[in-house]
Design a protein around this nucleic acid. Sequence first.
RNA 1: UGGCCUAUAGUAUAAUGGUAGUACGACAGAUUUUGGUUCUGUUUGUCUUGGUUCGAAUCCAGGUAGGCCAACCA
Length: 552
Amino acid sequence: MSEERSLNFIEEIIDEHLKAGKYQQIVTRFPPEPNGYLHIGHASSICLNFGLTKKYPGYTNLRFDDTNPTTEETEYVESIKNDVKWLGFEWKHELYASDYFDTLYEYAVTLIKKNRAYVDDSSSEEMASMKGTPTEPGKDSVYRNRSIEENLQLFEQMKNGAFADGTKTLRAKIDMAHMNMLMRDPVLYRIKHAHHHRTGDKWCIYPMYDFAHGQSDSIENITHSICTLEFVPHRELYDWFINELEIYPSHQYEFARRNINYTVTSKRKLLQLVNEKHVEGWDDPRMPTVSGLRRRGYTPDSIRDFCERIGIAKRENMIDVSLLEFCIREHLNKIALRRMVVFDPLRVIITNYPNETILLKTENNPEDPNGGTREMKFSNEILIERDDFMENPPKKYFRLSPGNKVRLKSAYIIQCDEVLKDAAGNVTALHCSYITNSKSGEDTSGIKVQGTLHWVNAADAVEVEVREYDRLFKVEDPTDEAGDFKEYLNPDSLKIVKGFAEPAILTDTNADRFQFLRKGYYCFDKESKPGQLVFNRTVTLKDAWAKEQKKG
RNA sequence: UGGCCUAUAGUAUAAUGGUAGUACGACAGAUUUUGGUUCUGUUUGUCUUGGUUCGAAUCCAGGUAGGCCAACCA
């Protein structure tokens, strides 16, 4: 849309590289660990990595960073592939860090032969105590000066399963006094007699992230390896391996992860919410996961638009969820079918209307000239929203009240004549009269009304289930509050209500996104069945009246 | 009391030594058979102190604030 939009800092770097002829094309990768579902933060990274190679010559790989068999599962692999595709991106190659286990092993042997790695028998506790602190240097392990031959032999034995888990590691030999703690002889390989989702039981030693990620980038000739800011200190190690191994020099660039208020985007925390049943699953519509947003009714276009708008930078950030909501409203306003659904019905009897049912025409989407029309039945008994009537209305209340007139959308103007109540004083029904020459499209009454209400014909309203979702947390940043973040879950994040829908909804099974007039945007939930329709609220409409009321 | 990263309206992001702009939000108004949409307008900003310069958000130095780093996680 906006060709002249300014570049983000990564695009600027790439622009320069391309202009200077450093690269003819660029290669990026999206490197998820298959230990959880993708969330909106990942979506931002996906849009960045895949977006870059749409904009510039080159391609993007999908590479699963599967170096820890104890947390990784194929279920996650499948969900991740599905989510990336759904967001609208195509990867060039589907790859796995585990594809490179043989090569990585050879790289480790190379380092040992260069006297740049050694087998350490220290326990993790010992290693931690000798690591030093950010302000104090660490101490060399007593195993640091084993001979190359001994290291070679021990490492091979590690590979062959001669040792128990945790008894030995392979470490790089760098500098235990280095300012950067990651350079203090980092662990390269650990022993884990665990079944891997792809390599099965072939291996009982697995490379650590630092020894796998950069080399995987290098093997794939990744030109621009983009990750989040917490990996900045890893870059020195990343470059050290590439330099020592004399392999293709990929380069790492870091940007700030995107945070959104009123939610959490940490796989660990999201996993907790799932495991402890605070939500129904990874795709619960309240989850900030891609699958949750999808089930909630978000479109891929709206998510891509959101990622585009929030941009990429290096500073800490907390993005207002209202921008996400703006993006989905903007898209849905253009494409969603309009339907009328009454949630909390109040019966209206039109006393001067004949005892007959007529058909009225109404548009499917006023924003879409090709949206077409549908028919609605109208009779002398209809349902309106209970809060569209007030017996003693405040100022600026444009809806129905005794003696007041409103228009029924696409139908007639009615006036409230009488309020019916039960013994307890609750309003049970309204007697209204209609203005005979005020029919929509052929109104000759000349009457102007301030309010237009949605309604359904009482005789053929369809009862449906509606799930009203709200923000998951009641505070902007649950992780910044005292105590456990789960204490700040919003107890009202889901309200299940009944709705009375116009019958058109029964034949709308091919459509999947709706605007319930004056209410919000809704979509079919996956649990919806013929005869038992279930809708999820994606987002409410903006509500100027609610705002007005808040002012008091 | 180490190293590294960062600092522009409420939020996010531009301005690449030369008029501080855009979007969302908020507020006000117009239009409207959705209190929706659309349109118009208003509001609010360069962390601080110095320096370089004709000119600094931008370059330099000091300070301040926030973040990251001591898993056999990624």
